[in-house]
Nucleic acid binder design. Structure first.
Lengths: 211, 211
DNA sequence: AACATTATGGCACACGCTGCCATATTGACA
DNA sequence: TGTCAATATGGCAGCGTGTGCCATAATGTT
């Protein structure tokens, strides 16, 4: 296990937002995730065992499960980051417009983080979503958590807008559907060397969904 | 031996649409499914082992897995029936209107099969979806198959409508989202003794989704 | 340097799921 | 009706996932 000592400047002070321990833990998390993603791309999710991932990442199988509850989750790391970015812009929902418009506007704003198609974030998101597209196991794992995520979204929107429960649910579900359609199209239209613009596709999708 | 084929073509066979064997097989399928559903309602999915379901249904564990690939699938039987009903009306999609309108109209037409809230079909659908709501494992299993289902829908719509790929995807994803929001609201609004009207809620949802 | 906290690894175990084989049941046909 | 082939079932061994428990090593604090 190689350790890039980028930030090993102040060993005596926990001045940073994260201690040495937590940084190291985060690093291990990334390494396992990267290893899992690569193996999944190469041999498929079903064809890859946790033991293989653990060994390739240089940890024991027992340790693997201390970082990720399932092998699928190990691959979804960057997708969760993506969803976290989207959820981050939810504090400033515009209460003057319809819930759906407010949600879509917030999503569009958050998506600017992914304007640069050649950025690391974009490339990783692309890899993960390519896998998600062809791996039912990953979709299943995604759906398992989506309950909580969607429920949280419904809660947030409910407290900010005075609408019927059905309308809130519709706004959330439809907004997510539009986003997912855009994401899938983005994956399809992106080749290895050239990625399309996710914000643009999303904008296009919003327009088409209106009609 | 063979997987439960819904449309089993039995060429030059006895008068009955199904042979004795297949009828018995179907019966066993129903019994296991009912047993699983009941146990899941009582002890939760995680808290129920396949061995328990099998024993309660009067078959061996090995036989259970000849009927259902996973224990979750055993509970989803009636939900698949519901989706089959929805898919049944897809042959007559109105090509004169937008894909989404055509899909929603077809769904609305198919939903008339579930107008009678006290029917067996409705009660079973209600039980299953109540479970789906609180069981991430069932949502995950649902999502695992939804890939295939959605892809098939996209295919059907694509061949009938001359639209951009993105628009087809949007029509499918949004239509399903509206349907699911209606389904969830239906579950929430239905008590044990009194069930709301699913077609009405869906109609309401379509209206709200327009705005 | 001594201590408390935390990370790691190994082991055993329950459970989900599959392949293989042996047996029993069923349907078809002479 | 009796025989034979097809199919359904059950038991068993085995692999993989995931968890609890405990011993040990690494780390941060005083």
């Amino acid at each position: 296990m190689t350790r890039p000592e980028v930030f090993s400047v102040s060993p005596d002070l926990p001045a940073g937002p994260l201690g040495l321990r937590e940084r190291r833990r985060e690093q291990t998390n990334v390494e396992i995730s990267e290893t899992a993603l690569t193996l999944f791309e190469y041999k498929g999710v079903e064809g890859t065992t946790v033991g293989e991932i653990a060994q390739a990442a240089g940890v024991s199988q027992r340790t693997f499960f201390r970082y990720f509850a399932t092998k699928e989750e190990a691959a979804l790391r960057d997708h969760w980051a993506f969803e976290a970015v989207l959820a981050g812009g939810l504090d400033q929902l515009d209460a003057e417009v319809s819930p759906r418009l407010a949600l879509e506007t917030a999503f569009a704003a958050a998506l600017t983080m992914y304007s640069d198609s050649s950025s690391i974030a974009c490339r990783r998101l692309l890899r993960v979503n390519r896998l998600i597209k062809k791996e039912p196991a990953l979709r299943a794992e995604l759906a398992r958590e989506s309950v909580r995520r969607t429920a949280a979204l419904v809660d947030v929107v409910s407290t900010r807008f005075d609408c019927a429960d059905l309308q809130v649910r519709l706004a959330v579900d439809v907004s997510i559907a539009v986003l997912r359609a855009a994401l899938e199209t983005w994956v399809d239209q992106s080749s290895i060397d050239e990625a399309a613009s996710l914000p643009e596709i999303y904008s296009l999708a919003r327009g088409l969904a209106q009609a």
